[in-house]
Design a protein around this nucleic acid. Structure first.
Lengths: 224, 224
DNA sequence: AAAAGCTATATTGTTGACAATCGACTTTAT
DNA sequence: ATAAAGTCGATTGTCAACAATATAGCTTTT
């Protein structure tokens, strides 16, 4: 059966959550700024009910923060959060690789290469937001292969925050995109037969990412 | 300043979420059963709006599952999920101990002992649901000490599911409560100076928990 | 008798109006 | 001039009615 064009009925709240998420990642709604329900509702052409549900969803994804009877804001960026995200990610991705290690097959290898190729395409095209998505897609394959539903859910939660930080980086500096060869050694290890080497590669990869993102935030906060 | 009696204004949705959660843990709403919004709303004496928000909250905690335009149910129990919960928990708690290891001080030790004492009190009193809460409180201390906000959030998510499984175990067998000495070696290691020994203790503790819970589910599914 | 189509009903999704609450500004008293 | 108290406007929380959807049961057809 050819993949049907996803005709499934979707609720307003879900669609608006997608739109809002995109707006936040695109920097159209800056970190720290407030969201007013009535304004957004009329802007999206829906009532406050579905909009509230969308907000709720983004709160759970860690993109918004809400205080009762007062308001909702996009989360502020902090170096502490960056360290937390990357340290947790190191732990989870190591765990994911251990689970996935014996499940790797020819299809895994092909898919991994395909996603790297897709990432490189986006780099060459210069589409920054697409780069971010595809780099996350590349890493997601390991989580998908691990065959661990709850782990996958936690990773999806982390992905949102990562995307926010990377997108902010891009907004500020114009370019934070990865280099074409940024995942070469990662793929080498992932396709090899040395699990400890893979774990070392993860640590290196994450430390690099964490330092880059932290430095960006430090500069930004000094300027402001 | 003496602790003020928590006079902070709370939203209906939040309070109802608490009530619903309690009902689920108490087994008043069995796993797999459906929740109908109108009935619950009138039962709690509120409108469907706040109730919907409460449902949403419990969905994010992994206690309910929803399919659009159709309905929401309490999650079904599965052995696969048990394995996932405990394996992820092993990973996270090991990570938490590594972070917390050098932050342990006299207060940490006292608090840990206090929480074990509280657990033993509940065991002696025979209050099963309270036992569950206090065993989770005991383990929570490590996550609180780790000084890692996101890790704490993920743990809180896992806690909900654990509570559901343990509560179901209790409902079925009348008694699943831990023995008085069930955490002795855990505390010994946690208060000692041998981190690898602590990690081994975590693995043992979790394997034991996982096997117990899995066996309960296996029996239950065979009977049904 | 089994399968396909239709209809009725229960349940969820959505809406616009109303009530409660908070933050900022103004006023007032010291 | 400053700080406490009060008022106003904006925003969120809540409600009850309405629309859209899916499931179950019946009818029809083969």
């Amino acid at each position: 059966m050819p993949t049907v064009p996803k005709l499934q009925k979707q609720t307003f709240g879900a669609r608006i959550a997608d739109e809002l998420r995109r707006s936040i990642f695109a920097g159209e709604i800056a970190p720290g700024s407030a969201l007013i329900e009535t304004a957004l509702a009329s802007q999206f052409g829906v009532s406050r009910g579905p909009l509230r549900e969308a907000i709720r969803q983004l709160i759970d994804e860690g993109l918004l923060v809400q205080v009762p009877f007062t308001g909702t804001h996009v989360v502020e960026l902090s170096e502490q959060a960056v360290r937390e995200i990357y340290s947790l990610r190191t732990t989870l991705e190591t765990f994911a690789f251990r689970l996935a290690w014996d499940r790797r097959d020819a299809e895994f290898a092909n898919e991994l290469k395909a996603r790297q190729a897709a990432l490189i395409d986006a780099i060459d095209l210069g589409d920054e937001l697409e780069c971010i998505r595809r780099e996350l897609d590349l890493h997601s394959l390991v989580y998908e292969t691990a065959n661990h539903q709850i782990l996958l859910e936690v990773w999806n939660g982390l992905k949102g925050k990562l995307q926010l930080y990377w997108a902010s980086h891009h907004m500020a500096h114009g370019r934070r995109g990865p280099r074409r060869d940024s995942h070469d050694s990662f793929l080498d290890a992932a396709l090899g037969d040395d699990l400890p080497a893979m774990e070392a590669e993860i640590e290196t990869h994450m430390r690099l990412g964490s330092e880059t993102t932290e430095r960006f935030l430090k500069d930004r906060n000094q300027t402001a």
